[in-house]
Design a protein around this nucleic acid. Structure first.
Lengths: 203, 203
DNA sequence: TTTTATTGACCGACCGGTCAGTATTAATTT
DNA sequence: AAATTAATACTGACCGGTCGGTCAATAAAA
């Protein structure tokens, strides 16, 4: 009556982080349980002490990933006041997300996206809730734009449509950059985006 | 010495069309050879008379799909003169692509995209050449914008960046619409896009 | 010694691809 | 014009490999 004790939470997290790395490297479909186990430095069976299935790992990894990302965005944006600056910052953070060490994570993100679109598994759809994710991001932008309109800085555009378009543009640039990192000059794109889509909001 | 003769080309096409439908319904990874065979109304073995592998079907379906789409875009755009109208038309065609019966094909398109991003198969990457696809679309837009600048209608923006952004916005709206068809009002988005990104080009 | 934690050999479902056998067609022969 | 022949076209049972998940055995801690 004196059992062995481990930090369950820590080990679970260790497996999630390992899974994220493996997902980033091989894509979700091609990531095998044994790969994740090896990356986490545990036996394959051990994973099943912490997760019921491969899908469950995937779901928890997804939630961890997006929760971190959203929190980071909100924190940074709260630090500036001017709505134009907020939007430019949002754009800038999205672009810097593409730099160097984050590149792999961008690939995971797209993989998550594709998985969410293609899955017919209801439980999965509930967890990898792309509807919710996009709605949250659109809401984030809507608030900024609405604030700008109230302050009399922005002209009165259709806020919902504009939010969708800005998210779409950032998303789409991310796609193109993942596909072909060299052909797109991110500095120029960021500048042009600011000059057209964002500045275009100003009265 | 008098063999049975079938229209190889027609039957090959029949299999490709069946494959496209199955891909649209289940996603590529979950589409089994037997599903494609059943949809095409042939035996599984017959498929291997026309294609060497599942990947080869996929590749040919991809090329058929995008070749058709691009040809349609170019034809329609050539019918108008004004660069602003051309861009609005491009936007309009992209949005109408999302309507009703095309919805499934949009899903295939995204699946192609995801497959292209994730594959580590070199031969595959060569055929499902997303770099080329995106470059072709950017070139299409670049030409229109450059024409507008030459005619003195557009202000001098960074043409390459602008092209990437417009494609990105259209792509991104497509993503959001596939995810959640009801929440986005395509008519409003198209209007807002025209008022901001496209009209913003005018001097 | 007892309880918890870990492991990897093993199982079985699944699926892409093969191939031996069958069907179909049309030229040739009778 | 019927029968024969020979070539192509088609088929699905089967094979081999893969991989998610299980569990009996073992290790580690207290």
């Amino acid at each position: 009556m004196a059992p062995r004790i481990v930090d369950k939470e820590a080990k679970k997290n260790q497996i999630i982080q390992a899974a994220l790395q493996v997902f980033a490297k091989n894509g979700i479909a091609k990531s095998k349980m044994i790969d994740i186990a090896n990356a986490a430095g545990v036996g394959k069976g051990t994973i099943y002490e912490y997760f019921r299935s491969k899908e469950e790992i995937f779901a928890e990894a997804y939630n961890t990933f997006f929760a971190d990302m959203k929190e980071s965005l909100i924190t940074h944006i709260a630090e500036v006041d001017d709505p134009v600056e907020k939007l430019n910052l949002l754009s800038n953070l999205s672009f810097s997300f593409l730099d160097s060490e984050s590149r792999d994570f961008a690939a995971v993100m797209m993989d998550f996206w594709a998985e969410g679109v293609r899955t017919k598994n209801d439980e999965m759809l509930e967890i990898v809730n792309l509807k919710r994710t996009y709605t949250e991001y659109r809401t984030l932008i809507s608030q900024i734009v609405r604030e700008g309109i109230q302050k009399g800085i922005f002209k009165k555009v259709d806020v919902d449509s504009y939010s969708a378009i800005l998210i779409a543009a950032l998303d789409g640039i991310l796609l193109q950059t993942i596909i072909d990192p060299n052909i797109i000059n991110l500095v120029n794109v960021e500048k042009t985006l600011s000059e057209t889509l964002i500045s275009g909001l100003k009265k």
